[in-house]
Design a protein around this nucleic acid. Sequence first.
DNA 1: TTGTATGCGTTATCAT
DNA 2: ATGATAACGCATACAA
Lengths: 341, 341
Amino acid sequence: MKKPTIKDVAKAAGVSAAAVSYALNGRTDKVSGETMERIMEVIESINYIPDFSARSLAKNQSKLIGIVIPQTESHKQLILENPFYSEIISGIEGKLREHGYHLLLSGVNQGESYLDLSVQRNLDGAILMGIYPEPFYDGFKKINIPIVLIDSYINDSYFKRIGIDDEYGGYLATRHLINQGHSNIGLITGAIRKDGVVEKRFLGYKRAMREANLFYNPDYVFEESMSYEHGLAAGKLIADKYPEITAIFATSDLVAFGTMRSLMSEGKRVPEDISVIGFDDISMSKMFIPPLTTIRQSITEKGAIAADSLIQMIQGRTELDEKEILLPLEVVERGTVKFKS
Amino acid sequence: MKKPTIKDVAKAAGVSAAAVSYALNGRTDKVSGETMERIMEVIESINYIPDFSARSLAKNQSKLIGIVIPQTESHKQLILENPFYSEIISGIEGKLREHGYHLLLSGVNQGESYLDLSVQRNLDGAILMGIYPEPFYDGFKKINIPIVLIDSYINDSYFKRIGIDDEYGGYLATRHLINQGHSNIGLITGAIRKDGVVEKRFLGYKRAMREANLFYNPDYVFEESMSYEHGLAAGKLIADKYPEITAIFATSDLVAFGTMRSLMSEGKRVPEDISVIGFDDISMSKMFIPPLTTIRQSITEKGAIAADSLIQMIQGRTELDEKEILLPLEVVERGTVKFKS
DNA sequence: TTGTATGCGTTATCAT
DNA sequence: ATGATAACGCATACAA
């Protein structure tokens, strides 16, 4: 049994295909209430479901949103190991579905190839998270598809940005440690790239130190990657070589987990011997033992807002909106930061 | 500048649209090497990219794979909070992309509505994880689309299943605790539904107890949901009312995290006072403090294999294959199980 | 080997 | 208000 088309509906309802199309799209101005009803009944009874491919072809809009996630270079896999991304996707998907859009999830092979996907699939828009090389962004502008950037500092009015004030977040975290009496504060972080979130958090760290008249020691900055493994390595280094450090700001919760683990392996107690504060407040952080003190941003909401913004852009009513939305930040005190005795 | 179509290519190459189509699909029998080259050159130069919507219409295949994830009932969001799902998706996406398929990620509103999506988008296949009501599965059979089930015990030869031997996993976990000298072993678990993974793990637990001639005490089974929160509640209950329990089998790592947390809040030490073993080995488990002893299944690989199987089904060469693939299981000893003193 | 013509399911234009 | 028909971009059966 083949699946019914609009023509089948038309035939069964004794109207033209055009009428059915009108009815489907709620054009009450083009179709009388009576026939409208009849058509709807037929649709129900023969269980007709419109074909999006055909619709996409005719209307040139796919109701499809792409979302691009950074990818580990070694693995060919999405870095969904970091719960941060899954949580944000969760937020995006919920909102999209609510508005009749679907979500195309994909990594990206080489630099350009994601563009191909956008064109192939006629994407109505896309959400990019993380940071990519320049030409990557340019491509999207060229094919003229609405884009929302999450956690990006690309300053181009073509894009709408959703993010947080990372500098302030870094400042908040560091100041919290300072307020607890710490002065030798280590920073464990991913690669500090120009205009990346990491750089901003790093800047916030420095500002807090400066404001408190504390000495900024570059040796206390452990920069490599936003991974559990780096946290592990840096934590060990600190335990071994820098016993004077009494507090650590890890620029993501995942890094903080690694840090705490190696710290404890080396015989340091958290927070008794050394305090640790993270960043993000992924859902796992409250589950950790001890529960992680961190900078909270509502990740899921971030995704939802990004989706909302994108839909607005697609529907062309973005004029009044600002080009950037910053979500609130707060330190959530749990069990890994302690007053320095 | 509109995006180039197959006709533009044809014109520029001085051939017909058909020739271009042949070239595109590698029909070397239909096109001479010479013109093939010329066409390819033009494609390169004007940067032509085929439209999948049109292709989907013409060929009736979309190169689109759907993946359905359970959804919390209260929230309208995907339960991507459980890293288990993100890891599996990661595995799926990587493999799909490798084969030229794209991934449509979606929750599901009511019972039937996912079917609509499959029809609307002309899905070439879908991967279902978790357990759904009967009619949900029937629908897929009716529209005749290849389906791979992950972690399901639906016994219907229409579907291909990828999973693990959950009964054996439960047995392994419990036996590990028994081998460490424990005899009062609690089970903290999600809802035990007929033919669900949870039931199987529960059965494995009972078998291990029986084999060891240990008394199976229904009071020691704490059944509710596969969530951190339930682990929390059950752990507290055990600490308060069942001091004789010296070991716990939590049927997922997330539950184990909750359990350990409340246990420790109540003053119990893990593993000194009470041992805990989990199930899944999500990436977070090795990061936990103490690192979680658990039953390992390679989650990402599970996703990859599911994707592989689905692609094979789609390409119609599934005859020789078995209808079920079971992945290996092993207990990975870390820091939460200790010999009973 | 190459080109022509037609269909895929839907929407939009233009009559009626 | 309703219907006939031409797009949309591509694949394919058939003719040349």
